[in-house]
Design a protein around this nucleic acid. Sequence first.
DNA 1: AGAGAACCGTAACGTACGGTACTGCCATCT
DNA 2: AGATGGCAGTACCGTACGTTACGGTTCTCT
Lengths: 217, 217
Amino acid sequence: MLQANADIDNGEELTERQQAVLDAALRLLVEEGDNLTMTAVARRASCSKETLYKWFGDRDGLLTATVQWQASKVRVAQVDGRGMDVASLTASLERFASDWLKVISSDTSIALNRVAVSHAGSGKDNLGAVVLENGRFALARRLKPVLEAGRLAGLLDFSDAETAFRTFFGLVGRDVQIRLLLGDRLELTEATIGGDAVRATQQFLALFGAKTRPQGL
Amino acid sequence: MLQANADIDNGEELTERQQAVLDAALRLLVEEGDNLTMTAVARRASCSKETLYKWFGDRDGLLTATVQWQASKVRVAQVDGRGMDVASLTASLERFASDWLKVISSDTSIALNRVAVSHAGSGKDNLGAVVLENGRFALARRLKPVLEAGRLAGLLDFSDAETAFRTFFGLVGRDVQIRLLLGDRLELTEATIGGDAVRATQQFLALFGAKTRPQGL
DNA sequence: AGAGAACCGTAACGTACGGTACTGCCATCT
DNA sequence: AGATGGCAGTACCGTACGTTACGGTTCTCT
């Protein structure tokens, strides 16, 4: 599998045309799900099947390239913990929660997660790992420094950042992702997302907020 | 789709032989995922394909029947809220959390959710709805009376049982289900499940436990 | 015992799709 | 201008699998 361009790790090394093809594949993936055909992709992208195979090796290669291409598009700015107070910490957490909810409720995320989940069943590729790496684990990498900074500023109290993160993850996501993946209609308006973000943040602070305000800094 | 026995709603109305066939299909589903073939099911169940089609209509019919058959097997005892104190409430919540974690980390649940998720993409059947109904919503139906009883006993304080349930759901499940569905190796031993259950329960009580002990009853 | 249905095992059919080969067009290079 | 190479478009091949058909066997009921 994936012989031609086995080195498509990030969104680099892709020509404009190739990116356009992957965008077409992505749109088709959102519309059709995992039962998109190579012919359909070629038609949508106005390219030949032979080109698809030359560039991406095989169907799995095209799919992983598509997923990684989408992943490379969502790089988010880092938050720095300098001069952190309870207000800025709260704002950061709410921002993360809101962003995350928006991501997992987006059509593309749902489609990508669906195909990744089904592929994870029969281990022909590592789509699941890719999605996991650019989803849940990327979120952890971006959020943990904030949590650590909050602890350093005496605002948070936890022993293990991983555990704290997972709790936050659970408070934010709850049953949303699995329900959406299973096809539940669940309209997440801007308003409800905002409300859920502050709720989750408040709950998280109630659980992990430092009782005292120590080591003033 | 599913013309022959369109009325397989619950596990009733199934002969012994049919149940055996569905068990075979279930085992095969766990092993092979969604790419099980009708031939393989027939071979595993020692029955003919003609019988499969006569009983279940088509492939989708067989799959939904299999999912419903598995769902019908997990009926759990109800908890009654009589004479509830903080200890029994805690025990109930921990029990629910532990059971739920055991379910979602089981091989069969993972396999069933995987196929349901992938089928939810292309709406050819309602596998997603079936799984949702017998999973997340069944859990809510069973847990909410406990929460209400806890509130009535003055142990819990919440305005909306649904919101409280969803928080509990998030605290228990966190990232477990999506990670497992995406193929993450995540060994949930009996010990870690137990630990997670008490942690989630403690966190839930910290968020929703009544501050005062009112309306003694 | 005998008729009839249910059912097993398997062969056969049709189709959808992944993958490959071929042809001709267009752009770039010399 | 002629040559070269990348690519669109399409025809083609092989295969896997859903679905159907059928002969032979076992079970059931009378």
